[in-house]
């Protein structure tokens, strides 16, 4: 893994997100992988190589928060940037409280994402 291109993983059941977001993140200069579900991500070989996880909140099956809990259980403190199409203000503080780097409401700007990513990757 090239240190100049930290790996960012995207987990979202929405296909358009999985199409568009990786391109944008690459533009930011990161390596990127996209998964359609939490289960798919967990099953992949890059869980421990992922430097930042961009994670959808609501997904069939394992939800974003579920995956967050699972990674925490496994002792994998991957910085997580939640993204969600539900603009529920009560949700964001709870997610942040549980350790998320950021929670972005769709649609979000490329700048907000870049900032969240920087923030995530800058964490110790």
């Amino acid at each position: 893994m090239n240190i100049a291109h930290p790996l960012v993983s995207v987990v979202d059941d929405d296909e358009s997100v999985r199409e568009s977001l990786p391109d944008l993140i690459k533009e930011f200069g990161f390596s990127v992988r996209a998964f359609s579900s939490a289960e798919e991500f967990l099953a992949s070989d890059i869980v421990d190589k992922t430097k930042c996880l961009i994670l959808d909140v609501s997904m069939p099956g394992m939800t974003g928060p579920d995956l967050q809990r699972e990674l925490k259980r496994r002792g994998l403190p991957i910085p997580i940037v939640f993204i969600t199409a539900h603009r529920d203000d009560t949700v964001r503080p709870r997610l942040l409280e549980r350790g998320a780097v950021e929670c972005l409401f769709k649609p979000f700007s490329d700048a907000a994402l870049q900032e969240a990513l920087s923030s995530a990757l800058s964490e110790p």
Binding site: S16, E19, S20, A85, K106, P107
Partner: peptide, 8 residues
């Protein structure tokens, strides 16, 4: 919001 997110 989903398509909007993609658009943006």
């Amino acid at each position: 919001n989903q398509p909007l997110s993609g658009i943006i």
